[in-house]
Amino acid sequence: MMDSVVVRSMVLPFYRQNGGLLAFLFFMMVLAVGRANDVGLLEYHFSLIRGMLTTVAFLGFVLGAWLLYAWKCAQFVERLLLKPEFSFLYLLAQVDRTRAYRGLLWVQVLLFLPVLSYAVIVLAVGYRHHWYVGSTGVLVFNLGVCLGAAHRYVMLVGKPGVGRSSGWWKLPLPAVRSYGGFLIRYVVTRRKLLFLGIKLYSCGMLYLTLPGQTGDETGSRMGLLFYSTGVLGHGVLIYLLKEMEESRLAFYRGLPVSVGQRFVQYGWFCLFLLIPEMIILGVFLPVSAAVFLFSFSYSLLLLLNSLRFAGFDRKIDFLKMVAGLYLLIIIAVMTGMADWVFRA
């Protein structure tokens, strides 16, 4: 009974909060790949797993991404425990430590389920093809994450009020006086993991799109498609931003600021989000192609941001709209409309 309450209290809110992000990733990794990739879904994932288990750098990149997700889970639990409505969870400190550990390990397994599910497939493929070193690395990593996280949760419930690391708060952030600055501050303090994950993916895919990385036009097309998923991935950030604005920055609606000035603030914010991509574009691409790809990314972000105000309030509606945009991009790329970028 107690375990069930703990699991429902800690796991359901996580998926309620992050359901949109996970559904988006699932769509991009499974449904979109099936549509966009000539070689098919299974072959695509097989080549992905092979690359992961036979190339150290690629394995490191994937484990890094999984670690970010694990960190996100841990942060969620820490914040949850600090909320007054979940203070009853500290009762776990009064039950047998082994039992509490077992319950919290189960919580971590459920939170980490999206990664664990894929890891099981990776392990099955890896051991079948005798890629023992990489497979064992994946196994040890996932065991370590789950056992370590459960240990941390047990420590947290044993010390009520202790939790969220305060290091970031001590960093001297520059003072902000503009609305765009408020939004940027939100991203770099409250959504930094999500932001980092999106940037790693988006910039990585952008690098693959560069001429000479893939050797042929088909590879570049795929790179551009995956880069597009990275840009559209910012939609998750933008959706969360809107939720925050509704609850914490509602006062802005009552201030005497024109629509034009409001749009400029969002414009600066979207520009800030794309700084890493701008650096890659500026360094590696000729001006014309860089301008095209930047304009594509920037206008897509502004469009996502504007659509938030156009009735796409519900998560599912927003997700459908993002999926629709992605299908349009697939059509544009696969019909060769953007090929001149690769030849530039």
């Binding site: 003072a175 902000v176 006086r177 503009s178 609305y179 408020f182 501050r185 939100y186 303090t189 409250r190 925050m244 609850s247 914490r248 920055l249 509602a250 006062f251 201030l255 005497p256 600021v257």
Partner: peptide, 18 residues
């Protein structure tokens, strides 16, 4: 309800400017 990650002076400065 205001953003927890802002300082009071940042909000006051913002209002002062607007």
């Amino acid at each position: 309800a205001y953003p927890a990650w802002l300082s009071g002076s940042e909000l006051v400065s913002f209002y002062q400017k607007v």
